[in-house]
């Protein structure tokens, strides 16, 4: 398990290094904030309304399709590792599995989900 300790140490070292550079920059950089400087950028005009605006519904639909395919990838990883010992039965099963998913993708395609408007 000591190999996985390296991951933990790398995460903490990464965060530490970034915080250290932030702190170093904090020590030496100038700081002259004033209200006009600190409003958000909108082509040098005063921002209109909130910036957390409504966005296109399509992002959500693509996220949904992605989740389906990503779960499939989770199933495919152990299959791919063990495939050498499994033989024809596993191959047929995975083909059926992929075909079922592609039926769904094809359905979404025909419904016009994949078309960006």
């Amino acid at each position: 398990m000591s190999e996985y300790l390296s991951v933990l140490i790398f995460i903490f070292a990464g965060i530490g290094i970034v915080l250290l550079t932030f702190w170093l920059s904090y020590l030496i950089r100038p700081s002259h904030p004033y209200p006009e400087k600190d409003i958000n950028y909108e082509c040098a005009e005063l921002p209109i309304g909130t910036s957390w605006i409504r966005f296109n519904n399509h992002f959500y639909i693509f996220a949904l399709i992605f989740v389906i395919f990503d779960v499939e990838a989770v199933f495919l990883f152990p299959w791919a590792v063990a495939f050498g010992q499994l033989g024809l039965y596993a191959l047929v099963e995975v083909v059926v599995f992929i075909l079922i998913l592609f039926f769904g993708l094809f359905y979404a395609w025909k419904k016009g989900v994949l078309k960006w408007v």
């Binding site: 958000n40 950028y41 909108e42 921002p47 909130t50 910036s51 957390w52 605006i53 966005f55 296109n56 399509h58 992002f59 693509f62 996220a63 992605f66 395919f69 990503d70 990838a73």
Partner: peptide
């Protein structure tokens, strides 16, 4: 809290997620 940034973030999420597969 910027409209351009939000759009960029949404787009990059959609793009990276699509090409992940």
């Amino acid at each position: 809290h910027n409209k351009y940034a939000l759009l960029g973030g949404m787009r990059s999420a959609a793009q990276v997620v699509s090409y992940e597969v």
